[in-house]
Design a binder for these strands. Structure first.
Lengths: 253, 253
DNA sequence: CAGTGGTCTAGACCACAAT
DNA sequence: TTGTGGTCTAGACCACTGT
């Protein structure tokens, strides 16, 4: 990476900088390599640190860089593809899918969740916490809402919370016949608790996947999962086929 | 919205500010309403304009606000759900789906696209441009790559480009038997041309949906569509059911 | 401890839309 | 021309990680 001077172009400095850095990442750096620190980089390009940071922010958003306070900025590996909408129509917790149930308790869900489920606004539901790990990295945190009516036989369980209870709820869910599921994906920012679980800072961009599981013509469960937007590529497929890879710059012809 | 003073809390000012503004949006503003300008807001909360802007940025990312240069900051309507992965297994361009084919030409695709398709690296493919409009707002811009082998009968077409040619490519595509499709969603930032088409600034956050269409055991077409991340909620479903709505704050129990 | 990225300030000027 | 959001600067200090 030379001491390139920025030309006077009709585009913002930080955007041009992003392009220059992007090319440098491809040609002069390898995955995991650590970049010079922000103060040095800014000086090298003759811009204020804030401007340099704006460029780095873009690249981090695009999954090209990873920044960690107290450590430095490193070149990120390509995004990992995580399957979220396979055609197998499987209940959460079926098979080995990388999810780990961590906790569960009976509580009153947020109003919008109660709406989507058929329960009354004050009816408590089972809330199952799960986290998903891929390649040793945490990629998602989920809250799964299960109305008591979906798992009537669970009354036998006496544990008020804990991982074992979470697994019990999931096990009971398998007994229902799954008729279908539908998901929605949108951009959000990590709440403090989610951020902690995903090893990111509060406010980090996440992809929020809301999935509704249908059985008996009703919504039998509702899942709200937040995925790290910087490291994940969510795959929805009905073929189980090969990975589709995306060019860092999505260059058009 | 009062002249609330920020308390000293162990969280960043901009994050606290985001929360305060978020609550104000729910209780004191209605959709489309215009907020006080940034300088006034910053003064009112006793912070620098840059800090106030950091909070607004978060809220815009979450689809709560819309900012337009020269105009102001307005309260955004709830995100619109746009279907991207229905179970009907339909080719692009089938039926009325909100897409509009605008142009098409024969050109050599980017290397990564050529990889996904089976074509050689230098083989030109049909590139179809489409844009998607919902509720009068542009929500997505797409590039559809179709190998010549997928539409052999198209050779009869002599127009080198144009909307009519684009429609012809799509029409030919319908004749193939679609075996399946698989999609991936990831976060990206709008290139200059995409940004123009989506009525946003360069670098605006977008959801990039890459879809592979399968026929005859091969990839018959590849679509790369960029959706406005601020206004869109992408839905993948196999039930055609009701909308799932998401609480502005995604409050956990 | 030294070094990193994260937050924050108080300004300045620019690009754009409406008047 | 006026007022808006967008860009940029040159600092300061904070929070965290490693040694």
């Amino acid at each position: 990476m030379g001491t390139t001077q920025l030309e006077t172009v009709p585009e913002p400095k930080y955007w041009h900088l992003r392009t220059v850095l992007s090319e440098a990442l491809e040609s002069e750096f390898s995955v995991g390599e650590i970049l010079p620190n922000e103060r040095d980089l800014a000086a090298r390009f003759g811009v204020a640190r804030a401007t340099l940071r704006q460029a780095l922010e873009q690249l981090e958003l695009e999954g090209r860089l990873q920044r960690r306070r107290g450590v430095g900025t490193t070149v990120a590996p390509p995004r990992v593809g995580v399957a979220v909408g396979t055609e197998q129509h499987a209940w959460p917790g079926a098979g080995e899918d990388g999810w780990q149930a961590t906790d569960s308790a009976l509580a009153v869900p947020p109003a919008t969740v109660a709406d989507a489920l058929v329960t009354g606004a004050e009816d408590p539901v089972h809330i199952v916490r799960r986290s998903r790990v891929t390649h040793g990295q945490p990629v998602a945190a989920e809250l799964l809402y299960v109305p008591q009516s979906s798992v009537p036989d669970l009354s036998a369980i006496d544990a008020p919370s804990g991982a074992a209870r979470a697994r019990a709820v999931l096990r009971e869910l398998q007994r229902l016949e799954l008729e279908g599921q539908e998901s929605a994906v949108e951009l959000g920012s990590a709440r403090a608790d989610e951020a902690r679980e995903l090893d990111r800072l509060t406010g980090a961009p996440v992809l929020v996947v809301t999935t509704r599981y249908l059985a008996h013509g009703r919504t039998a469960a509702l899942s709200v999962a937040t995925y790290r937007a910087d490291t994940c590529r969510l795959t929805f497929g009905d073929t189980g086929g090969v990975e589709i890879h995306q060019d860092p710059e999505r260059r058009a012809s």
